[in-house]
């Protein structure tokens, strides 16, 4: 057992207090925030516990499940990552788009969200915001992914309920819908 005491990142060294805090700007889902956090806090902790942005979920907090996936631009154009693995302060001045930034026109469900519902890709749903985030990114770069390409893009997201079959179907359906809409 590596640590019964559970030294979460937010307590490494027990560094509360003035010398342990960092203040920086962060734009989340279009809203600019000034964040004060401990130096070793993860982006996920800042989003959820400091800013109350609860769309990214805590599944493992060590980069294995993808429930915390967000799209973040740390000065290099932006990509989808695990918010639990990013020391929050490294995102100083950056922007984060969570699942809350994903929607269709006029706030309706996006094609990916719609397909997840239609295909039964959602059960307990704790993995869903991460999957929708990663699948949305996939379709932006590859509008017609093959099944192996879908799997290659999504294996950083774990699901314990569905067995993934409906998730693959949802991504395929969303891709078809999107291609039909842009044809």
């Amino acid at each position: 057992m590596s640590a019964v005491e559970d030294p979460r990142t937010d307590v490494a060294g027990g560094t509360d207090g003035a010398d342990g805090s960092v203040t920086f700007g962060l734009t989340v889902d279009g809203t600019a925030h000034e964040v004060t956090a401990r130096w070793d806090e993860s982006l996920l902790t800042v989003l959820r516990d400091r800013l109350g942005v609860r769309g990214p979920k805590t599944g493992c907090a060590h980069g294995r499940c993808g429930a915390c996936a967000v799209k973040a631009d740390l000065g290099d154009g932006g990509h989808v990552l695990c918010a639990c693995l990013v020391p929050a302060a490294t995102a100083a001045g950056g922007t984060v788009e969570t699942i809350a930034s994903i929607s269709g026109p006029d706030g309706a469900l996006s094609d990916v969200q719609e397909a997840f519902l239609a295909e039964g890709a959602v059960q307990c749903g704790i993995c869903t915001s991460g999957f929708v985030t990663a699948a949305t990114e996939l379709l932006e770069t590859n509008p017609d992914p093959t099944r192996p390409e879908i799997e290659a893009a999504l294996y950083g997201n774990l699901c314990r309920c569905t067995g993934y079959g409906r998730i693959v179907a949802a991504v395929e359906t969303a891709a078809r819908t999107r291609r039909a809409a842009t044809r």
């Binding site: 030294p7 990142t9 980069g63 740390l74 020391p87 490294t90």
Partner: peptide
């Protein structure tokens, strides 16, 4: 720390402690 993908789980799981971060991410 660069990407954080090793360091952050290290802090969480391997009981490693750190006195501070020097991030090369930017």
């Amino acid at each position: 720390v660069a990407g954080g993908t090793e360091v952050m789980p290290d802090l969480l799981w391997r009981n490693r402690t750190a006195a501070g971060f020097l991030s090369l991410r930017r």
